Simulated assay, not measured.
Amino acid sequence: MAKKSNPFPLQKISKLGFYLFLILFYSNCFLRPSGNLTNYDSYFPHSSGTSSIPKGKVRATFLGTSSILLDDGETQILTDGFFSRPSLWKTAFSKIESDPLTVLSVIERAKINRLKAIFVCHSHYDHVMDAPFVAKQTKAKLYGSSSTLNVGTGAGLNQDQMQKFILGKPISIGKFTVTVLESKHTPPFHILGKTNATDPNHPNIETPLIQPVKAMEFIEGGTFDFFIQHGKNRILIKSSTNFVKGALDNFNADVLFLGIAQISLQPVSFQDEYYKQTIEILKPKLIIPIHWDNFFKPLSEPLEPNLKLGDDFDANMKSILKRSEGQKLEIKLLQGFETIDLF
């Protein structure tokens, strides 16, 4: 009697098991946080900001990535406002769009109730995607590049509620004055054969972008820093880990919100120059690192460092801490919804 052939030979099963083991092993390695926040507990102020804002003070609330709410008790301004934070798998394999319920919950929890302006640093999805929806809900004006305005138009925002950046021209909003400065995006990364590098043939979003769309359809469209004055106090918000040499030469800042994503992945010469072109020139008293968190996780959960897949939070922090050692400046990290009175 002829023996039946085994459709799953042991050799094939063992190979399959081996490949599954490799997939699980590398997923476990690269999809883990790239740092342990408990090692930096002393850098967190652990403040909920429930008290009223003292007159003349400015309070900052960190809302993940480079979304920062500034509030002087009368007027609020916001950078980016990216709250939906779709998962890694949805971002990689599906179309994405603003999640109204999530955005509304953040608006309520962060007490965004007197917002007058939203400034978008560039038009990748993790900065601009929710900005039009936030503007609609709060009646705030959206400020950005032509690419950002095309995202706003695609979301149905009225033209009179949007304004294109004019580099170097101060914009007065309540007691705040915001000046938009030219900058550069963090050097491009390459992960699993994909890159966020801008196609020189298509550097901008040229037509209204109607969500849902693929993440790569959110084209950078230029990157910008924000110099913000409030009375005699000065803030510089630098969302991306890069610089235009000499762009900040004529500025000083009391507080620097500093993008640190992927800084340790760059050559040491770049890290040195980045420190020089930001911290050494601006001479801030306080540095608050931003764009360090894993923005694939919901903002409703405690923030975790970026994934090992594309970043190294521990090394990023060491890059800044080592170079600032012995300097008369303070470094603070903020959790999601955590606040700090800047002045």
Rank of each mutant, 00 (worst) to 15 (best):
M1L: 09
K3V: 04
K3S: 15
K4Q: 13
K4D: 11
K15R: 08
K15Q: 03
G17W: 08
L20N: 11
I23M: 12
L24F: 15
Y26S: 03
R32P: 01
T38R: 14
S42M: 10
F44N: 11
P45F: 05
S47A: 11
S47T: 05
P54L: 06
K57V: 04
V58M: 03
L63Q: 10
S66Q: 03
L70C: 05
L70K: 10
E74Y: 13
I77K: 02
L78S: 00
L78T: 07
T79C: 04
G81V: 08
G81A: 11
S84F: 01
L88P: 06
T91F: 05
T91L: 14
A92P: 03
I96T: 12
S98V: 11
P100M: 07
S105A: 13
S105V: 09
R109D: 08
A110E: 04
I118M: 06
Y125T: 06
H127K: 10
V128L: 03
F133T: 10
Q137R: 09
T138R: 05
A140H: 09
K141A: 06
L142C: 09
Y143W: 15
S146K: 15
S147Q: 02
S147W: 03
T148L: 00
L149Y: 10
L149S: 03
G152S: 07
T153M: 06
D160N: 11
D160E: 09
M162D: 00
Q163K: 04
K164S: 01
K164Y: 00
I166K: 07
K169H: 04
P170L: 03
S172C: 00
T177I: 09
T179H: 11
P187H: 07
P188N: 12
H190R: 13
I191L: 12
K194V: 01
T195H: 03
N196D: 15
P200M: 14
N201K: 06
H202S: 13
E217N: 10
E217Y: 00
F218M: 04
I219D: 01
G221E: 00
F224H: 15
Q229R: 09
K232D: 08
R234Q: 14
L236N: 02
I237Q: 02
I237P: 02
S239G: 14
S239F: 13
S239D: 14
S240Q: 15
S240E: 15
N242L: 14
N242M: 11
N242V: 08
L248W: 10
F251H: 09
F251W: 06
L256V: 04
F257Y: 09
F257H: 01
I260K: 05
I263M: 10
S264D: 05
L265D: 07
L265W: 05
P267S: 04
S269W: 13
F270S: 00
Q271P: 02
Y275K: 01
K276R: 15
E280P: 02
E280A: 11
L282N: 01
L286I: 03
H291N: 13
H291W: 05
H291D: 05
N294K: 12
P298G: 11
P298D: 10
L303Q: 10
D312F: 09
D312G: 01
A315V: 02
L321Q: 14
K328H: 13
K328L: 13
K328S: 12
I331G: 05
K332Q: 01
L333R: 08
F337C: 13
F343A: 07
